[in-house]
C-alpha cells in the first residue's frame, strides 16, 4: 500500500504527464517570432575553410509570402537584390543587369556561400501552421530551463520534414533547433542567442546556422536592427524595385 502511494505521488509530481500542451508552447513561440511585417538590418558572418567574410543586408518582409532583401556589402555583393513572392524567388545582379528566377532544387542551394539555403531564407510560415508538436522532455541550456519539442510536418511543402526545438520555458523562444530530412538525417543545427525584449516580445538576435553536411563553423546571422509592424510601401515587393 505504501509503495502504491509512492508510485501515484511520483506520477503526480514528476511523472511524464505534467508537460504543458506542445501546441500552446508553439503558439507562444509564433507570437514572439512572427509579425505582420518587419524591416531588418542584419549581417551574416560566413566561416570558410580559408577565410571568413561578412555580408550585410537590409530586408523587408510581410507575412509569409513577401520579402525583399538588398545586399549592402561587401563590394562583390553590393546591389544584389532578392525578391520573394509566394513560392517564387528573383535575384537581381547589378554586374550583369539581369533578373534571374530561381526555382526547384536551386532553392536548396546555399545563399552567398553561407549555411543558409534560399528555402531557409524564404520559409516564414507560423510553426503552428506547418507542424504538429509534442513535448518530449526538458533540459537546461545556458542556465535556462527549456522544453524539448518534437515537430512533425503536417503539410507537404515544408523544407524540413521534422525538427527538434529547445524552447525557453519562460521567454518562449527557441534556443536550439535541429532540422531533419524525411530520411531522418540531421541536416542543420541552429543555435539561437542574444535573446532581447523588443517591442514587447522576446526575440533572438543571433543565430548560428550549421549545415551538418558541410565542414566548418557554420554561419552567424546577426540582427543589428529590427522594426516590427512597420509601414512598408507596396512597391518594395514588386519586380520593379529589383532594378531600382
Amino acid at each position: 500500500m505504501k509503495s502504491l502511494l509512492v508510485i501515484v505521488f511520483s506520477l503526480i509530481i514528476g511523472g511524464g504527464g505534467d508537460f504543458p500542451d506542445a501546441n500552446e508552447i508553439l503558439k507562444k513561440v509564433d507570437e514572439n517570432l512572427m509579425s505582420k511585417n518587419r524591416i531588418t538590418e542584419s549581417k551574416m558572418v560566413i566561416y570558410g575553410r580559408r577565410n571568413s567574410r561578412t555580408v550585410t543586408s537590409k530586408g523587408y518582409s510581410e507575412g509569409d509570402t513577401k520579402s525583399f532583401t538588398e545586399y549592402l556589402s561587401p563590394e562583390r555583393e553590393k546591389g544584389t537584390k532578392m525578391l520573394k513572392l509566394e513560392d517564387r524567388l528573383w535575384i537581381y545582379s547589378p554586374s550583369t543587369d539581369r533578373t534571374i528566377q530561381l526555382s526547384g532544387h536551386m532553392l536548396r542551394q546555399s545563399v552567398m556561400g553561407s549555411d543558409l539555403s534560399y528555402e531557409d531564407m524564404m520559409e516564414d510560415r507560423e510553426l503552428t501552421e506547418i507542424y504538429n508538436a509534442k513535448v518530449i522532455g526538458e533540459e537546461t541550456i545556458e542556465d535556462r530551463k527549456v522544453w524539448i519539442l518534437e515537430l512533425t510536418a503536417k503539410v507537404d511543402d515544408v523544407s524540413y520534414e521534422s525538427r527538434k526545438s529547445w524552447i525557453d520555458q519562460e521567454r518562449y523562444v527557441p534556443l536550439k533547433e535541429e532540422l531533419y530530412a524525411k530520411s531522418g538525417q540531421l541536416l542543420k543545427r541552429i543555435t539561437l542567442s542574444q535573446v532581447e525584449r523588443l517591442d514587447g516580445r522576446w526575440f533572438p538576435k543571433k543565430m548560428n546556422y550549421k549545415d551538418m553536411l558541410k565542414d566548418g563553423k557554420g554561419t552567424d546571422f546577426i540582427i543589428e536592427k529590427i522594426e516590427f509592424d512597420a509601414d512598408i510601401p507596396d512597391y518594395i515587393f514588386s519586380k520593379a524595385s529589383l532594378k531600382k
Binding site: 577565410n51 567574410r53 555583393e77 535575384i91 550583369t96 534571374i100
Partner: peptide, 12 residues
C-alpha cells in the same frame, strides 16, 4: 549563376 571561391554569388 554560381558561387565564387569565397562563396559569394557570382553572375557572368
Amino acid at each position: 549563376v554560381g558561387s565564387t571561391m569565397n562563396g559569394s554569388m557570382t553572375f557572368k
